[in-house]
Amino acid sequence: MPSTAEPFIRARNLTKRFANFTAVDSVSFDVQPGEAFGFLGPNGAGKTSTMRMIGCASPVTEGELHVIGMNPRTEASRIKARLGVVPQQDNLDAEITVRENLLMYARYFDIPGPIARRRADELLEFVQLSERANAEVESLSGGMKRRLTIARALINEPEVILLDEPTTGLDPQARHVIWERLYRLKRRGATLLLTTHYMDEAEQLCDRLVVMDKAKIVAEGSPRQLIEQYSTREVLELRFSDEVRAQLDGRLSGLADRIEMLPDRTLLYTGDGERTLEQVHTRNIPLESALVRRSTLEDVFLRLTGRTLVE
């Protein structure tokens, strides 16, 4: 992707080492203004450590990192003033109410009282928590807490919003509410950085993403580019009985570009799933079930790492 402006975030050989392991190993990427940029990968891939370095919550061990043109090492407070952070685990202030959380957070940014109050009320409206304004944080559901954390991250009208696993642990309904709100932010032109291990989240929200595995970036592109590059158009998912599976060797060969044997199912990567299924039938292999679907980022990840995202 050609860069049209100075990148908002620029990382070169960015590395994070803890006492006994390397969490992020020499990664490089650029994020442009107005872009929704994702880090996709399983738990422990180094996504959170990368986010924490960008959010100036964790010192850079090695390499270069610029956030909105500034160096986190020396200008942390000035960077943070222009960021909104939604951490992986909600760290709301449990001792004060929902609205007070927003007001107090505004004070940490030196936002004057009247403006803080106006924004707090607007944001409560935005995340649909107006009715719970005076509730205690502990009384909120998981989804509500998440929404409040998002509202809190927006109190300083940030130029960049960092979202670390924004919907992990939420039920499907709560996830969709959050996706819808994040989509609105994106349309307003906010720059979003998010980590996720849900491929559907990455596909829905990200303009561009990097796939991370074992502390390194293994691929980069838009969701469509990645699927085109690393997978076929369609996937045929087959399930066999244990006996058939045990004696399968070679009987599927030549039917697809690539075959993945997972513990519970077998994936055949092919341009036309229905045709491949017919060929399976002609070879007289008894099936328990068959499903033709489009390729997803999950398949990209499997191809790149040999593992599934959510285990």
Partner: peptide, 14 residues
Amino acid sequence: HQKTYDGILATPMR
């Protein structure tokens, strides 16, 4: 436990 300070440290507070 509450990680309150982590939340505050995401702002210009040090």
